[in-house]
Design a protein around this nucleic acid. Structure first.
Lengths: 219, 219
DNA sequence: TTACTAGTCAACACTGATGTTGATTATCCG
DNA sequence: CGGATAATCAACATCAGTGTTGACTAGTAA
């Protein structure tokens, strides 16, 4: 019942970070509705009252955590939001985006789950910065002559994003070694590449990528 | 505070069903960790004690609900589990499976979410009957000469299943008219078909499906 | 040093959840 | 009919969670 013995050394920034970190863990494990401030505070080694000092309410704590994750995700895949201009749009870049995404998702399965669930349950998912950037990269690529005609970009975005974030959950990323995780990422990106080459890309325009897949086409 | 006025007419089967139905609603809205027996009972118009008579514990109630959903899903896509033999495996059947799945997911976005989350959080996802059947259909098809070589079936299964269940959530299926939902299903299945034709299927073997997509291939 | 600011914490009041128990009574069956 | 069965419910004990308040004290600046 007693919360903690020794009084925490004073460092509000670090305290805030500790709370957010604990919130991420709890949120990933128990989901939005399963998060309690009490549990987060205990896990962070902080008095519950202190948590309420930093985040006025349970709801705000969740919100702040989700924002943190979205930002982290954005940076991992697209880099600094400040340099959001002059992004190239060739086929290789969509490929690079997916690879970064797959790697991040596998290394942070919990965060990916948080982001996905949070975006899905938000009233306007397309307000999320990461989603916007992902979709717009896709859209710019679609206008390219390298792209297959007739694609439904919204469907494809949802399909690929869902896949990227759910694959690590399925693959039990958290219970595996770094090497295994790396292998899982490889499997996923290879399959996505194979799929896109013959589904959303014109193979004849990406012979180099085609070769990387190592699939024989017996025609 | 007082739970109900008139005593419920005695009909244990119906009562059990009412509880399960309410549990599905709550589970879909608040997720596994957000479900409380109290809320379920109230929504079902049943005394909390009665709910505990039918399901010994909160955990068992959730389990029973998930099993119900899995069964419903299985039947919607594959039909009666009793006739699980002699299933054909041609390309058209994978296509039919995906169409049934897309329609079910769109008509029951809540149930789809329940299933997906439950399977993902279970310790052995591949124990789920629906998953097994889906994966095995896929696997049998993959051995067919109609299938593309070199596919990673596990990745593809996760990718497509995740997409099917998350698309309706994204598309806000619950807030749309029947007509709109139907249109959303069409969009999704068309795009999946287009994708598979040029990613997991050999187009030259499916000229009829190719025509249905209505995509011109300017070779 | 001293006074102030603010980060940290214990305790409080309250709400709602869990699982249990015993009373009530509809329904069934001999 | 009349007793047994079991479905339903109210009430109880217990515990966890929320948000608030005031006391304590580390750090800071005059």
């Amino acid at each position: 019942m007693r919360e903690e013995r020794a009084r925490r050394k004073r460092d509000p920034k670090r305290t805030r970070e500790a709370i957010l970190e604990a919130a991420r863990e709890v949120l990933a494990r128990d989901g939005k509705e399963g998060l309690s401030v009490a549990q987060v505070a205990q896990r962070a080694g902080v008095n519950r009252g202190t948590a309420y000092q930093h985040f006025q309410t349970r709801e705000q704590l969740i919100e702040a955590t989700a924002a943190w994750v979205s930002d982290k995700l954005y940076r991992a895949v697209f880099g600094d939001p400040a340099h959001a201009h002059d992004r190239p749009v060739k086929g290789h870049d969509i490929e690079a985006v997916n690879e970064h995404l797959a790697a991040f998702a596998m290394e942070n399965p919990a965060l990916g789950r948080i982001w996905l669930f949070e975006v899905l349950s938000s009233s306007r998912p397309s307000d999320d910065p990461f989603w916007r950037q992902y979709a717009s990269s896709f859209a710019r690529f679609a206008k390219t002559p390298s792209a297959q005609p007739g694609m439904d970009l919204e469907v494809l975005s949802v399909l690929f994003l869902a896949g990227h974030f759910i694959w690590p959950v399925w693959a039990r990323a958290h219970a595996r070694s770094a090497k295994e995780r790396q292998q899982m990422v490889k499997r996923f990106t290879r399959e996505v590449l194979r799929l896109t080459l013959h589904g959303t890309l014109r193979p004849e325009k990406f012979r180099d990528l085609d070769a990387r897949v190592g699939r024989r086409r017996d025609k």
